[in-house]
């Protein structure tokens, strides 16, 4: 038996060869489907521009001749933005006293507000969609190949995005939610305090000089004073959540045995690896060493991630451990 067979198929390893034979039936051999015609964005812009110019020329001629066009609704050219549909949260639209349900396009710089009992389903370019819940206020900040950016001033939304990491961002008054390919719910209260619960993939919460990595099954809250909190899994025991909240609130000092960090380290299970990983960069000295030791116990540390590099917060070491950790909590939602 040779380890090289697993690596480069040299030598032999009957056990691996048998697995190959067993599993080879699942191998992919389907031919490529012809891709659809690609949208020609530049050409589209030129066509729109030509249309605008032509329309302007016609209007100019009509004005010059002193002949106004017949009364008709103003014709609007499609603006760059996100299409949306407004509806009643209970599904009832129209009728006396009921909500008016309609659609439109949210342009760059424009706000979309939902009244009590209303919601809006917004298409986020070609990468996903979101639902804006009742009593919310949302603005489209920018949209383009490099970034789609929104601002949620208040209220609640649920977003679902399939796109390369960092292409989709939602700002709130206190934090930026950077999509790493995921689905999540977020809520912003009147003070801007932002709560995010991730239901698929992961997000990075960034604000006030801090970042929190929040994968699916976890949640975090951000406020103006402290930025994003340390993420905890949504089903964490109350005592553990309380200890994390006390740690974030600055509940240190005193004897280690009664500190919130001691509770976190003592109570953490493999399911809390994400919390521990986030705590590495939120602790110092002996506290960080204690967090490291517990994380090393409950999660697999890649061989090439060196303890010294982690304790000195080398970005590459932290990132490689984070990537490795992804597998330890991943279960198909």
């Amino acid at each position: 038996m040779s380890d090289d067979y697993l690596w480069d198929k040299s030598g032999d390893d009957p056990e691996v060869e048998r697995l190959e034979q067993l599993l080879g039936g699942y191998a992919h051999d389907a031919p490529m489907r012809e891709p659809p015609p690609r949208r020609r964005r530049r050409a589209t812009v030129l066509v729109v521009s030509a249309t605008v110019l032509a329309a302007a020329a016609v209007l100019a001629i009509l004005w010059w001749r002193g002949r106004a066009p017949a009364a008709s609704p103003p014709r609007q050219l499609a603006a760059a933005g996100f299409p949306y549909e407004l509806s009643a949260d209970d599904g009832l639209c129209g009728g006396p006293g009921a909500l008016v349900c309609e659609g439109g396009t949210l342009g760059v710089g424009e706000w979309l507000e939902t009244a009590a009992g209303a919601r809006a389903d917004v298409k986020v370019a070609d990468i996903g969609d979101l639902t804006l819940r009742p009593g919310s206020r949302l603005r489209l900040v920018a949209t383009g190949p490099a970034e789609h950016r929104l601002e949620l001033e208040r209220g609640r939304l649920s977003a679902r995005v399939t796109a390369p990491p960092r292409l989709f961002v939602i700002d709130t008054p206190v934090v930026s939610t950077v999509d790493l390919g995921c689905a999540y719910d977020m809520e912003v209260d009147a003070a801007g305090r932002t709560h995010v619960r991730v239901t698929s993939g992961s997000v990075s919460l960034e604000g006030n000089g801090h970042a929190a990595w929040v994968p699916w099954g976890h949640e975090a809250t951000a406020d103006r004073a402290r930025g994003p909190s340390t993420p905890v899994r949504s089903d964490a025991p109350a005592a553990f959540r309380d200890a994390v909240a006390r740690f974030d609130a600055g509940g240190g000092g005193g004897a280690w045995s009664v500190s919130p960090l001691a509770t976190i380290v003592d109570e953490a299970t493999p399911a809390d690896a994400v919390t521990l990983w986030n705590l590495l960069s939120r602790t110092e000295g002996a506290d960080r060493a204690a967090v490291f030791a517990r994380l090393d116990e409950v999660a697999i540390r890649p061989e090439w991630v060196i303890e010294e590099d982690v304790l000195s917060l080398q970005p590459d070491a932290l990132e490689r451990w984070r990537e490795s950790l992804e597998g330890t909590w991943f279960l198909d939602p």
């Binding site: 399939t162 796109a163 390919g181 698929s200 939602p333």
Partner: peptide
């Protein structure tokens, strides 16, 4: 990965 996760959900 994103496509697969989206599908699995």
């Amino acid at each position: 990965r994103n496509r697969a996760i989206d599908h699995a959900r």
